[in-house]
């Protein structure tokens, strides 16, 4: 709390005005519209709309396509998060061992953050290109056929790798910072007591890293659920046969391509509830971390 304050009735509102106006027009109003729209049904020409209560939501729950999208999102989000974090942790632990070459490796590992997810999607598309791509070629040499254009599992693997790739550097940086904040004396004491490197990692490093891990878990889940839109749209477009149609992509498809406004709005509201829940979890946790 500040003791020294300025006193003025209008100035603070003037200072806040740009932020509040932009937020009201482009965030709150559209969100309110989405909520309103989710209780309405429009006729085919969009001329009249009629209040239908929870019908749009009930229709979602009855739609096998929507439930499938939920399942796809769950598999996708968890896979992206786990793959990213395991890879990043492995790199961070290795970097943490090497004092002299730490800087070089860090620089070489953080730059994918700069590559837009959409561009990452296109790059991996090229690598996974079924006719000329390098990976399908290598896999075919060992007898595995890989074609994400027709195969549902292959498509999922493809978008998971592309999405995880653009997120590695972020988790890596936070893991490195987390590792460096663990006091060296703890590990030294364990080493003197005869604990080997593997045992030290699981009994000391990993538990002390848990605040970082938990934070990254939440942040990466949010990333995988929402910001991977670009990866999907630049590559599979949710196909083949809905196998990569995650929730954010379906909102867009139903709202813009399919023009099914009521259903799209109801889906938006469901997603808002999910983001709000995740944000609350994230902030409560951060408060705790500060209180340590």
């Amino acid at each position: 709390m500040k003791r020294a304050l300025f006193h003025n009735k209008f100035l603070p509102w003037l200072l806040l005005a740009p932020q509040l106006i932009v937020t009201a027009i482009f965030f709150l109003w559209p969100a309110a519209q989405a909520i309103r729209q989710s209780f309405l049904r429009e006729d085919a020409f969009g001329l009249r709309s009629q209040f239908v209560g929870l019908a749009n939501y009930r229709a979602l729950w009855g739609s096998s396509e929507y439930l499938n999208s939920f399942k796809v999102t769950l598999i996708f989000t968890v896979s992206v998060t786990v793959l990213t974090m395991v890879f990043a942790l492995l790199m961070a632990v290795a970097v943490d061992r090497l004092v002299r070459s730490e800087k070089v490796y860090t620089t070489l590992l953080i730059w994918p953050y700069a590559v837009a997810p959409a561009v990452a999607g296109v790059l991996w598309w090229f690598i996974f290109n079924p006719s000329i791509g390098i990976l399908p070629y290598v896999l075919s040499q060992i007898g595995i056929s890989f074609n994400w254009i027709y195969d549902k599992t292959d498509a999922m693997i493809f978008v998971v790798i592309a999405s995880a790739w653009s997120r590695i550097s972020y988790s890596f940086l936070f893991f490195v910072a987390g590792l460096q904040s663990i006091p060296g004396s703890l590990r030294e004491a364990a080493a003197i007591d005869g604990a080997g490197p593997v045992k030290r990692f699981f009994t000391i490093t990993l538990p002390l890293l848990s605040p970082t891990t938990f934070f990254l878990l939440v942040v990466n889940l949010v990333y995988a659920m929402f910001e991977t839109f670009a990866v999907i749209d630049a590559t599979t477009l949710g196909g083949p046969a809905q196998s990569t149609n995650i929730l954010v992509y379906k909102v867009y498809q139903d709202g813009f391509v399919g023009q099914n406004l009521g259903s799209s709005a109801a889906q938006s509201v469901v997603l808002m509830v999910i983001v709000i829940a995740l944000t609350v979890i994230q902030f409560r946790f951060i408060e705790k971390r500060v209180a340590y």
Binding site: P12, L16, Q19, L20, T23, A24, I25, F26, F27, L28, W29, P30, A31, Q33, A34, Q37, F226, E227, F229, V248, V251, Y252, G255, F256, L261, S264, A265, S268, L271, M272, V275, I276, T279
Partner: peptide, 27 residues
């Protein structure tokens, strides 16, 4: 003052992806 604070906080919970159609309409 706290109302202003919470309005700003709300932007965090409303990524553009979840309100695409109505935001497009406003613009």
């Amino acid at each position: 003052r706290m109302v202003a604070f919470w309005i700003i906080f709300a932007t965090l919970m409303l990524p553009v992806e979840v309100r695409i159609v109505p935001t497009f309409k406003v613009v």
